[in-house]
Simulated assay, not measured.
Amino acid sequence: MAKKRDYYEVLEVSRTATITEIKKAYKKKAIQYHPDKNPGDTTAEDKFKEAAEAYEILSDEQKRAKYDRYGHEAPGGFGGHAGGGFSMDDIFSQFGDIFGGHFGGGFGGFGGGGGRRTNRGSDLRVKVKLTLKEIATGVEKKIKVKKYVACQHCNGNGAENGTAYTTCSTCNGSGTQTRIVNTMLGQMQTQTTCSACNGEGKNITKKCPHCSGEGIIREEEVITINIPAGVAEGMQLSMSGKGNAARHGGVNGDLLIVVEEEPHPELLRDENDVVYNLLLSVSTAALGGNIEIPTIDGKVKVKIDAGTQPGRVLRLKNKGLPSVHRYGTGDLLINISVYIPEKLDDAEKNILSGLENSPNFQPNKSVKDKIFSHFRRMFD
């Protein structure tokens, strides 16, 4: 896959360009590479789509800020069609209004469409629950989605057998109406969506009985989703064109996937690190030993040094979660606590009483300083 060019480079604007400058630069590029001016030129078509993708990001304040911070590898992507999902219909539908009267009275002139309006289906939003194991490795999920799809009986145009329609006589199939208005500055030409056909350029003479003329029906579809490793709670992924189909043909909406993390019974997530709270007995903390603890991948044994103090944190490198940006892997942090029994029998009391006066069981100044330092860091 070819490496994406910097969006600012595509539009030939600076990184501090205003929205007006970005819009002007996009208009210039799109007119230069418009398919009507470059028939059959696939290179021009690619540049046309590339400019639209750059404009989609840089004209949106939030998407632009995300791009400036992370570049093309932003977590969760940018939604919409950024990432190469643009079709010609997408571009004409979303950005055609900034071109005014170019190319036959509307920017949607590609392929003879004139100013015809392109419908766009609505987006769908689903939630996908993931375990820490799935987040660590990435996972493929198959989900069932109830959505609107194009009616197969009328090919999505709403007319019986797909042919029971006529060209709109009001706009002659262009989808727009042109009016001349007299003003103090002289005559001005304006274009509006055709009121007779709602911008579609045609009128249905007999509705499809299967979809009642809507061009869409509701069905259940199984969609395969590839979740990358390292995603986090609330992160949103986007699949272009997997949303609802549009009425009377057009561009499908997008499928938006929101990530939910299933709580792990023993591990806690802290960004890319994973935390395990280990509770030791007094004897194990004093004498040391080998303790089995859980990780994302299964159980492992760790060595506990003799004299381990509560509050100590052990670190197992690269046993956490990978970065979604591929910047490395987090660690497993083992936070140590020591269990002090609440009730003792007489024999246990006698044993501890016998140790009470032993110098090794009395905290010295060094230990007291460490404990004080630990608590001071907690409250800083």
Results as ranks from 00 to 15, higher is better:
K317N: 09
K301P: 00
D345I: 07
I293E: 02
E348N: 13
N335M: 01
N318I: 05
I351M: 14
I291V: 10
L332D: 11
I304G: 02
I296N: 02
I336T: 12
D297R: 06
E342F: 09
I304M: 05
H325S: 04
V338N: 08
D305F: 07
L316P: 03
I293C: 01
L344M: 15
L314I: 04
E342I: 06
I340A: 13
V324D: 06
N335G: 04
V324T: 02
N335A: 08
E292S: 03
T308K: 01
D345G: 06
K303Q: 13
I293R: 00
D331Y: 07
D297M: 02
N318E: 15
S323D: 04
K301F: 02
S337N: 13
D346P: 12
I336S: 05
S358H: 09
I293S: 01
K349P: 06
Y339S: 10
I334L: 08
K301S: 09
D345F: 09
V300E: 03
P341R: 08
D305S: 13
K319Q: 14
I296S: 00
V338M: 05
I336F: 08
I351E: 15
Y339W: 07
D297C: 00
I296R: 03
D331K: 09
D346E: 15
I336V: 14
I293D: 01
R312Q: 13
D305A: 11
I304A: 01
E342M: 14
N357T: 12
N290A: 08
I351S: 11
S358N: 14
L333Y: 02
G311Q: 03
S358Y: 10
L344S: 09
R315K: 14
E342H: 13
L355D: 09
Y339K: 12
Y339P: 04
Y339E: 12
R326T: 05
G328K: 03
S323Q: 00
N335Q: 09
G328S: 02
R315A: 04
L321R: 01
L333W: 05
L332G: 07
D305E: 11
D346T: 12
L333A: 03
G307R: 06
A347S: 13
K299F: 04
K319H: 12
D345C: 10
E292C: 00
E292G: 00
S353Q: 15
Q309F: 09
G307E: 07
H325K: 11
E342Y: 07
K303T: 10
G289H: 05
R326G: 04
T329V: 14
I293V: 11
K299W: 05
A306W: 02
L352K: 09
N290R: 14
P341Y: 05
S337M: 13
N350K: 15
G328C: 04
L314C: 05
A306V: 02
K343R: 12
R312A: 12
R312K: 13
R315C: 07
G298K: 05
V300T: 11
K317H: 08
K319M: 09
K349N: 14
I336A: 07
N318Y: 11
R326P: 00
L344Q: 11
G330C: 08
D305M: 11
I351Y: 15
I291K: 02
S323N: 06
I340M: 10
I334T: 03
K299E: 03
G320S: 04
E348G: 13
Y327T: 14
V313T: 12
